[in-house]
Design a binder for these strands. Structure first.
Length: 190
DNA sequence: TGCCAGGCCCTCTTTAGGGCCTT
């Protein structure tokens, strides 16, 4: 592999819509044994569907997950901490997420732009890697490429997390299990 | 009240449509 791969996942207030980007609630990343995990109170309401999927709710400006209080930090602090985490690795790195080009990459980039952090971010992240594209390239015969299905198929685990840290962790396990070649990885970069 | 997106890939394609995947 050309660069180390950092596996990350976002939990957000919803999906990308034409005139509205969702807010970040949680950023998690793993690279080998190194782990990053942070939460922030979103500035826009969490959609009903997103709340039912992730378990996150905001009550009087405080974040809860399945009813449990969650320690948060301002978004700019979370983003800076995430970038500092990436700089602490032997970079530059590939930043991998499942369906990165559909949600995680554009939402993260937009948030970084808002705080003028994209330049600093680009100094340590070479490219995004979309493991959904990679899975379709490697296993075109599979009828599903959802993270839940792939975890069940390759890791023989029951999996229904929708917690960013758990999602990033299993994504790394999948990648290590697959051991994809350089060519397949290169074609899944965005 | 009820409804809601976008990008990618595949194919019975390219003058298009449908399914999947993410929260």
């Amino acid at each position: 592999m050309s660069y180390p791969v950092v596996f990350f996942d976002l939990e957000t207030t919803g999906l990308i819509e034409q005139h509205h980007y969702p807010d970040i609630i949680q950023i998690s990343a793993v690279c080998g044994e190194r782990v990053f995990n942070a939460y922030t109170v979103p500035r826009c309401p969490i959609t009903r569907v997103a709340s039912s999927i992730t378990g996150f709710t905001v009550i009087n400006g405080t974040l809860f997950c399945h009813g449990q209080f969650v320690q948060t930090a301002p978004l700019v602090t979370v983003l800076n901490s995430f970038i500092n985490f990436l700089y602490s690795l032997p970079g530059p790195v590939y930043l991998a997420a499942h369906n990165a080009c559909g949600l995680d990459a554009p939402v993260l980039i937009r948030a970084l732009q808002e705080f003028n952090l994209l330049g600093k971010f680009r100094g340590v992240v070479d490219r995004f890697l979309d493991t959904l594209l990679l899975s379709k390239r490697l296993f075109s015969q599979l009828h599903s490429h959802s993270l839940k299905f792939l975890v069940s198929r390759f890791l023989r685990k029951t999996y229904d997390s929708h917690n960013a840290l758990e999602d990033a962790t299993v994504l790394q396990e999948l990648f290590y299990k697959w051991q994809p070649g350089r060519k397949a990885v290169r074609k899944s970069l965005i």
